[in-house]
Computed example of a mutant assay.
Amino acid sequence: MSQQQASTPVSPLRRRMLDDMAMRGLHEDTQCNYIKSVRNFAAFLGRSPETATSEDVRRFQIHQADSGVQAPTIKNTVSGLRFLFNVTLDRPDLSRRLVLARYAQKLPSVLNVEEVGRLLEAARGPKYRAALGVVYGAGLRVSEVVGLRACLTTVDL
Rank of each mutant, 00 (worst) to 15 (best):
L45S: 04
L45F: 03
G46L: 03
G46S: 02
R47S: 07
R47M: 07
S48T: 10
S48V: 01
S48N: 03
P49K: 00
P49D: 00
P49C: 00
P49M: 00
P49Q: 00
E50F: 04
E50R: 15
T51I: 06
T51V: 11
T51Q: 15
T51Y: 13
A52H: 03
A52R: 06
T53Y: 12
T53C: 08
S54R: 14
S54K: 15
E55P: 06
E55W: 10
E55F: 09
E55K: 11
E55L: 11
D56M: 01
V57Y: 03
V57S: 01
V57C: 10
V57E: 04
R58G: 02
R58T: 04
R58L: 11
R58H: 09
R58M: 08
R59G: 01
F60T: 00
F60H: 01
F60C: 01
F60D: 00
F60I: 00
F60Q: 01
Q61Y: 14
I62E: 15
I62F: 11
I62Q: 13
I62H: 14
I62Y: 11
I62C: 09
I62T: 12
I62P: 05
H63V: 02
H63D: 12
H63Y: 15
H63L: 04
Q64E: 15
Q64P: 02
Q64K: 09
A65H: 12
A65Q: 15
A65P: 08
A65F: 07
A65N: 10
D66P: 06
D66F: 04
D66N: 08
S67T: 06
S67M: 09
S67W: 04
S67Y: 04
S67K: 13
G68Q: 07
G68V: 03
V69T: 13
V69S: 09
V69Y: 10
Q70S: 11
Q70V: 09
Q70W: 08
A71F: 09
A71H: 14
P72A: 02
P72F: 01
P72H: 05
P72Y: 02
P72V: 01
T73D: 11
T73L: 08
T73H: 12
T73C: 04
T73M: 10
I74S: 11
I74H: 12
I74D: 12
I74L: 15
K75M: 13
K75P: 06
N76R: 07
N76F: 07
N76G: 08
N76P: 07
N76H: 11
N76E: 11
